[in-house]
Each structure stands twice: as structure tokens, then as C-alpha cells.
Amino acid sequence: MTDADMQARARQLIACLDLTNLNDDCTEADVAALCERAATPEGPVAAICIWPQFVAFARERLAPAIRIATVVNFPAGGEDLDATLAETRVAVADGAEEIDLVIAYRKIPADPDFVENQVRQVKAVCRTARLKTILETGEIGDPDAIRVACQAALDGGADFLKTSTGKVAENATPVSARLLLGAIADSGRDVGFKPAGGIKTFEDANGYLELAEAICGPGWATPERFRLGASSVLGDLLAVAGGKPRAGGAAGY
């Protein structure tokens, strides 16, 4: 890949980024800074992903072209459906345009119908908001069980399959990405894919994009179908896009 190709690809990846702050100590000041970072010199990110209590605050400060995503049933992936539905209703009313739901992944594979119903009911209260289902693939572990989780989410009407919360020991991996992308391709549905957690560098991010297009087809990985859940990777993407020295370094979420 030439320098010019890398710069163009980095801009493409920025446009697919869900710039995230789900730190336990996140404050309104942190969210305000995130809103500013999201409108980058190389173009806006796709969305910011924040805690539900900050959605209304961010809506007043975020550039209109950038979506607001928030999380529900997060990070535990519990089984209290009524609480999750109430949380989703408030988030949508506050201005969330995308809902990232942690499915009750501990019910997989013994009771996938529970998860399918959970996804279906949350989808119904999302109204026009997109529903991204977080499968927590690192905790499920077994590939066959991950496939069951994918099918339950798809049958419930999920708009995206997302690997992970970023809050456990194993988050997005190429192995889990292949399983989710394979399920999407096999379904024939217009469903997106979001790897999250552990995406540190341009190379990490680009690897997921290339994998998505290898499985789902060239040109598939647009912001409508492909997102990256990360925070500190933006610095590396901006350096590559601008042809500047790369600091490298650690990633958070």
C-alpha cells in the first residue's frame, strides 16, 4: 500500500469510527472534549459512543453530521428486560440515534429464544434508532455458541452485530470477526458489523476492514455497515491520514 493509499484508507477508517468514552469516571467535560475530537481535520467520525446519562448533553454540542450511540444493559448483559427497555426508551427520547445493546449472552447457547426475544423487544422501542447487538464473544468463547448468538440477534432484528463491550479480558479478535461476518454474509440481510475493544493502530483497524470486504464483498465496508469501536486509535489514524509521524502507543476501549 502506497503512502497515498494509506492516507485515503485512514480517512475511510475515520469515517467508520465510533469514537468512544465508556470509562467509569467519564464526566460532562470528557464528553464535551469527545464531541470536539469527533469533528476531525480529516473529516467527521461516524458516531460517538457514550454512557446514556450524557446523551442529551452531547446532542446540544455535537456536529449534526455525527451520530450519537449509547449503550444499554451495559456491560453486564443482564436478563432484566423491563429495565433494559426503560433504559432504551429514555436514551432514544434524549436523542440517541444508535443503541448498543449487550445481549444476555450467558443464555447462549441453552436459551437462544430468550436473546432473540430480548433483541426483538429492544428493537421495537428503538423506533428509528439503529440497534447494535453486543455479543461479548470473548466471554461466550465457543465458536458454535457464537454462531448461535449471531443467529438469535439476527432473528430478533439486529441492525449490527458487535463483538464486545471492551470491558472483558478478550474483546474483538480476527477469529470472532470472521464468525460474525460469516453469519452476516450467510444471512443475506443488510446488517452491519462492529469490532470493539483492543483496536490500537491503523493496521488493527485496516485489518478488520479488509476482513469485512473479503467476506462480505468489495465496497461493503461503508459507515452504514462497518464501524470500529475505539477511542485512542483516532490519533494514529489522523497521523496516517495527514502523512505525519506516528506516535504509536496504547489503546483504551
Rank of each mutant, 00 (worst) to 15 (best):
T173K: 05
T201V: 09
K244R: 15
A32I: 04
D204L: 01
V233L: 11
R178D: 12
A58I: 09
D190Q: 08
K107D: 05
A145M: 06
G157T: 02
V119C: 11
D3A: 10
K107M: 12
Q12K: 06
P223S: 08
G217H: 10
Q151I: 04
A4D: 09
P195R: 13
G197F: 01
K244F: 11
L181N: 09
R59T: 08
D111L: 14
E224V: 03
K167Y: 04
A33E: 14
E213S: 08
K123G: 10
L17C: 05
R147V: 03
F193L: 11
D155M: 07
G95H: 05
C216E: 04
F193C: 09
S187D: 09
L81K: 06
A158T: 07
F54Q: 03
P52G: 12
C126Y: 03
F160C: 06
Q118I: 00
T201H: 14
R106E: 10
E203F: 07
V119Q: 09
E116S: 13
V125M: 10
T84E: 01
D186V: 04
G156N: 11
D113T: 15
E224R: 15
G157L: 05
D80I: 00
E139G: 00
R11Q: 11
V90R: 13
P143N: 07
G252C: 04
I50K: 07
A129V: 04
P44A: 06
P75T: 11
K162N: 07
E136T: 00
D155S: 15
A76V: 15
A4E: 11
C126M: 08
E87K: 01
L180K: 05
E213Q: 12
I108D: 00
G243I: 10
F202L: 07
L228N: 13
I68R: 07
D186A: 15
E224L: 13
L161P: 03
D30H: 14
S232K: 15
T2L: 00
R89T: 05
Q151K: 14
S176T: 15
K194D: 05
R246S: 09
V92N: 02
P195N: 12
E210A: 09
I184P: 03
P245V: 01
A29D: 15
I68A: 09
P52C: 11
K123L: 06
V71F: 05
